[in-house]
Design a protein around this nucleic acid. Sequence first.
DNA 1: ACTGTGGAATGAACGCCGTTCTCTAATAGA
DNA 2: TCTATTAGAGAACGGCGTTCATTCCACAGT
Lengths: 257, 257
Amino acid sequence: MNDELPALPWERSRRRTAPARIPLTRDRIVDAAYVVLDREGYEKLGMRQVAAELGVAVSALYSHVSSKDELFELMYVRMFDDWDLPEPDPEHWREQVAEYARDGRARLHKHRDMARISMGGIPFGPETLPYMDRILGIFRAGGLPDRVAGAAGDVISTFIDGFALEESMWETRRRESGQNSWAEMRETLERYFEELPPDRFPHLVALSNTMFENSNDDRFDLGIEIIIRGLASFVEEVEKTEAGGSSGTSAPEDERP
Amino acid sequence: MNDELPALPWERSRRRTAPARIPLTRDRIVDAAYVVLDREGYEKLGMRQVAAELGVAVSALYSHVSSKDELFELMYVRMFDDWDLPEPDPEHWREQVAEYARDGRARLHKHRDMARISMGGIPFGPETLPYMDRILGIFRAGGLPDRVAGAAGDVISTFIDGFALEESMWETRRRESGQNSWAEMRETLERYFEELPPDRFPHLVALSNTMFENSNDDRFDLGIEIIIRGLASFVEEVEKTEAGGSSGTSAPEDERP
DNA sequence: ACTGTGGAATGAACGCCGTTCTCTAATAGA
DNA sequence: TCTATTAGAGAACGGCGTTCATTCCACAGT
């Protein structure tokens, strides 16, 4: 054999690189995808970038992942890892729902543009079903009629995703417009609204203060509060006859911030 | 001038092709984009398809539209054409909000995958500002405190967009899975939920009936009702002590369109 | 110790995309 | 009638997701 002969110049060297020390797995691919997502953003997240992040050929990914869509789906279900929803507690369903919502938003914020990936994720896949069941359980434990519990899931989850998506789009615009900090961006926006012609946009101008003086967190919490109060108005007072009776049908009194 | 003379037969070579009978405009491009969207769906909507629809070279589009993103933005603002929001009526703000929501969903349903384009549209662009102002006006006329009115816009619009987006994604899945009718698809889904292991997903199984026996319209209306009830719980009963009086300090009565 | 085999990674290619560039031809104005 | 302008055409560029034939490597069986 001529193994030890110098490689002929026109042939590519036989053993080119170190042979993939660590084996490629779906998990490593998802990890790399998150690294790329955080560094480059949703628009630049592609199979080539993920492969480059792993130091691997693009086509190698397709042995473990059937398409970009599936990769995104894997990223989506990754969002639910280690998410422990509490045992439904009839007495504290409001707090449990509020905390679920805040957790959801926090998880969406853990990675840049994550809301873009979350939208379009299948909410009833095998991995996410347990969480959907749990949140429905919390609603039902709270006394929501079944048909309201179903709609409650729609309202809550569209709000969480939609709010986070809007935040991530503002963040993108901020980045693209060269504004360095959120405070700077917010000031720019507030000025924009304040300088609108008040005769044509009286309400926007009037609200420009309150809309921007509160943080996004406050606005999110308020949105959740609105939804929870609306849900509470449907709670059937089936029993709970005696002490500690909560409010009437349409307007519950208050709750913990 | 010989403008009105018929073209001489032998010099037809001069003007060999029909010289763009109808001039290309932004409006015609947006029209064509909608045609392509309805026929091919969001994923297949591209500059080449739009150009082909117009019988025009791709590059011609860029004389009127600076990018695909701008084209999408034009499609987004088109959604607001001829949308007459009513004069804010303090007595009927709930009905006005509900109708606004239903209108919004209907407009999103007018074109396939429209929700995908609506998500990502700039809600505070010059063309959409009047509508945002109007809906805020309705909230304030109803007696919502200013900071609640701001959050109310978030909740309502994320629900409308998110709900419609989810619908359009189910529709896409139905199309891709070869199911012909929605009824068929719904039956498949209901069976899927019913056959889940009840010990692991008790609530999903329990709700599988009610979740699918109601139409999407009912679920949407119920979601809106939840939100409106939540908003109502924030209405300040400042005065409105008795008959006639319009609302108080925080809600201006009306405005000219 | 040798060899055969199967799975995983490679590199090149395909067809598509959004966008840009150059050039042509038709129009409008003097 | 000549010229300046400009809308549109056509080709090209780089990048995308995906596929495919090939190559390499680790390991099983002899």
